[in-house]
Nucleic acid binder design. Structure first.
Lengths: 293, 293
DNA sequence: ATTCATCCGTGCATTATTGCACGAGTTGTT
DNA sequence: AACAACTCGTGCAATAATGCACGGATGAAT
């Protein structure tokens, strides 16, 4: 009689459309999911999924309860947050997420310090691609580049983000047909390139800032990057070109779910990060750039 | 990781205030409840209940999630109903509830017939005191005496209920100080007695119609009863007195939850009951009374 | 004081659930 | 046509959850 928990299994299968990936999401074996869905159907005498070769497809009965199941999930997440909010100890886990380059080049030493200050708090870092869902408690604190964070998240905007055009001038000769490195999502020549290098060609696309930086450093081309990464690497041959770029509307945010605003260790962590990031505000604002001649 | 189901346990303990009765409500051993509440507290690092000598008392943390837990319960009940609604088979269980006297003296033979007509439907009868919660699926179909059923229940009003004053005139001499049998809830002389037997005394109180009938039959006193019970027992010495009683605003209702209105076997059962009860409409309207001379 | 009833926690045996490994079926690729 | 990759179901062994029986602690009644 695992009454309520069955809906978790239902929802996972309904969402992913097959037992295997639902099991992965639930972090259990696929046979468990299979058996529990079967049991759920058995118990209520209703077929919830059609077995098709590619997996499980919802029946009308399943569609009837799908919306309710999502509301159930939200309320359960709310319970989880409320309970976490009541945790007044400066010990236990904090799940922290940020872009991996930000961690590796700006914050890892600070986090080492935080560890010393709060030895009973264990940091769980998620820096891999994809946004963690703060409502689902996939992370407690996030450092994000964002223009306007959603209402249910609270946080401080440390600084607006400054971008610049960077190149390794040791290896790359700048002319009208300079090679361009752009983001994977961008199909045509990026706006900044159209303005400043109208004849330029995109020679490489990347999906990661560190990869972009590496490519620029290797002399493959020029790229528009947020200043913080190239500027923090002071000994690098990658220089910012003297081209004025408008200040981005995106800022550096420290974010948490509203429900967690009073949680002791979350506050502690946020305040620490705020202090440390504010100290380096100029870095994000692009004030420490090493310009090319 | 019985994530969602833990809230069921929490809610049961929060409601009853102790582990033992919560376990009874959940139909598990008390040690299971105890262990799961402990595990829940452990997992979230929050104390949910204070252990007081008389049981478990909610902490502030628990109060925070109590309301959400109730909403979760409602939504889970909704899921359960929706799934049941999708069950198009004329087989399986139907949970039926009604006053026990109505079952024993009016409907048990009809239900035997229903069993023959629908051999694959198993009837589960609840006739003990206390209203079953149709939203919680404690019953699927209810026969109730009610004035205006709540919005979330649908049903037919078979007839308004007629009451009469009854006595065993073989054993009881009717005069101004006739003994009265009333309901346990009534503190003073009931209205009907004040009108028709102003000098009378309440000599017995009962909490059950059949008990009231038995008392009247034994000649202990007169009582106001719904006509259907004494009138169905035609060979009885209990006779209705020729006293006009206003027709009650309460009616005989066949009720189900709205969500179950399309469920095949529920419809089937309701229609059957409606037919059979409508045939006996005159009984509820008090048209077949055996009057005293 | 003593007895009783009613809380709750815990060790141990039983029961239920889960993971693992395998097989069968379908799809798409070489 | 053969193979890999992907679905899912199932028997069996390992694991986790549960029920049972006991004991301690508290409060009420005698």
């Amino acid at each position: 009689m695992n009454d309520w928990d069955d809906i978790r299994y239902f929802l996972a299968v309904a969402r992913s459309g097959n037992v295997t990936s639902a099991a992965k999401a639930l972090m259990v074996n696929h046979s468990t999911v299979s058996r529990r869905i079967h049991a759920l159907e058995e118990k209520h005498g209703v077929r919830l999924f059609e077995r098709i070769p590619s997996g499980y497809k919802m029946t009308v009965a399943a569609l009837d309860i799908y919306e309710i199941a999502i509301e159930l999930e939200n309320k359960n997440q709310q319970v989880s947050r409320q309970l976490f909010a009541q945790d007044s100890r400066l010990q236990g886990d904090i799940h922290l997420t940020m872009p991996h380059d930000l961690l590796a080049f700006c914050l890892i030493d600070e986090l080492a310090l935080f560890r010393q200050q709060q030895p009973d708090i264990r940091l769980k870092l998620s820096v891999s691609k994809g946004l963690r869902d703060l409502a689902a408690r996939e992370a407690d604190v996030a450092i994000r580049f964002s223009s306007t964070p959603p209402d249910y998240l609270i946080g401080q905007n440390i600084s607006l983000l400054q971008h610049g055009i960077y190149a390794n001038t040791d290896k790359l000769r700048l002319d009208k047909s300079v090679p361009i490195i752009s983001w994977s999502g961008e199909n045509s020549l990026p706006g900044w390139a159209q303005t400043h290098f109208p004849k330029a060609q995109v020679v490489m696309q990347v999906d990661d800032l560190l990869a972009m930086y590496a490519a620029v450093k290797a002399g493959i081309g020029v790229a528009r990057m947020p200043c913080y990464l190239p500027d923090v690497l002071t000994e690098s041959p990658v220089k910012r070109l003297p081209i004025e770029m408008p200040r981005s509307t995106w800022g550096v945010w420290i974010l948490s779910h509203v429900d967690l605003r009073h949680t002791a260790r979350v506050r502690c962590c946020r305040e620490f990060l705020q202090e440390k990031l504010t100290q380096r505000k100029g870095l994000f604002a692009g004030e420490h750039s090493n310009y090319a001649d």
